[in-house]
Design a protein around this nucleic acid. Structure first.
Lengths: 196, 196
DNA sequence: CGGTCTCTTGACGGAGTTCAAAGCTAGTGG
DNA sequence: CCACTAGCTTTGAACTCCGTCAAGAGACCG
């Protein structure tokens, strides 16, 4: 599978020699994942992180009452994995599956650490990516603590306009931390407000 | 101020030569911060990150209704900053102040980036730290979405036993995402349960 | 001591949940 | 290509967890 998309994403942050591009590509393996297929199950070990070439994946946990809580949506050009399991190589707490038919590049932790030594620029790339992830995770945390559900939904629509039409509403509800029923009511209100 | 505590913290993750230790130390400046003094105000630019040598700091945002939301407590041996502002050098959204009289080492983004080039091991140290931060931020997000306030409080007590006695309750309430009044009621219930 | 900040307690209110029922959509097999 | 089913969405009524407001009782510093 073509790794050019990932190479471009890396080059947007750190420059790469042709040699290095080849080396990086040699560490990657492509994979197709059908809608509803799993990339990772709870209690497995996340041997790889995945870079999304097409489609869309999500990571989520299941609580003791059986409810799903979406941690992340991963559209094209995003990375997804269970970071906890990936870095510690212990049993994962998250599930990862495909929301749409998707293609991904898989990158093992082992290969990642080896590559960090051979091409330090890749460690920089992931350092920067992780910093940005942390910032958005913090922002989401503060949003959940400080703004009510309706505004969180409006914000979601503003931040991820491309996802709105692709995703079932129950998964958006799960992401912003409310029940599907309540999201439906919010949407009803917003719709009525526009009419009047 | 003595930078040995930080050097030890780095050496727990990556080995360092005596030369490198000196270089790192030369980039740091010490500072005392009294209880209630600010290290960073909202809308300032976070020129530095701070490593806590003694005492305890916290970072928090203030919402449009004037309520504080604690993002992080930073006891001894932790780093604290507004990551968003620190990496982008844009205006911060967070405030950082001291909960107790404290001593910190300050490390500017400029120096950090320079050090990453001179001593790549330091970039690895921060890469690993940021990965771990991200994992705990994700876990806290999922906890807030999936478990009720009483259990979040019990979990907080289990995870940060050393902080319980140092912090005013209203700040613990803010951290776990409830009002001080409701935390007081939870504590009342837990107390009564033990008696019977 | 006096004043300010924190903690407690109680009555009330509201945002969001639960449960149930019905309509809708989309994937699947014949 | 249609029919059937399973899952998604909507709607409403009852309920609950937690927030709001208010008032009083500590606790901590100058």
């Amino acid at each position: 599978m073509n790794s050019q998309k990932l190479i471009e994403s890396i080059k947007a942050i750190v420059p790469l020699e042709a040699e290095e591009e080849k080396l990086i590509s040699s560490y990657l393996t492509g994979r197709r994942i059908r809608k509803r297929q799993f990339l990772l199950h709870e209690n497995q070990i996340a041997k790889t992180a995945a870079f999304v070439l097409s489609g869309c994946l999500r990571s989520y946990s299941i609580d003791e009452n059986g409810f799903e809580h979406v941690l992340q949506f991963a559209p094209v050009n995003w990375w997804v994995s269970d970071m906890y399991s990936f870095i510690s190589q212990k049993e994962s707490r998250l599930n990862i599956d495909a929301i749409l038919d998707s293609e991904v590049l898989l990158f093992s932790r082992e290969n990642q650490l080896e590559l960090f030594d051979k091409v330090p620029k890749t460690e920089r790339y992931f350092r920067i990516l992780t910093e940005k992830s942390l910032v958005s995770s913090h922002q989401r945390l503060l949003d959940n603590l400080s703004i009510p559900a309706r505004k969180r939904y409006e914000k979601f629509c503003a931040v991820y306009p491309s996802l709105i039409n692709k995703l079932p509403q129950k998964q958006i509800a799960s992401f912003i931390g409310i029940t599907p029923e309540f999201l439906s009511k919010i949407r009803g209100e917003l719709h009525n407000r526009k009419k009047s």
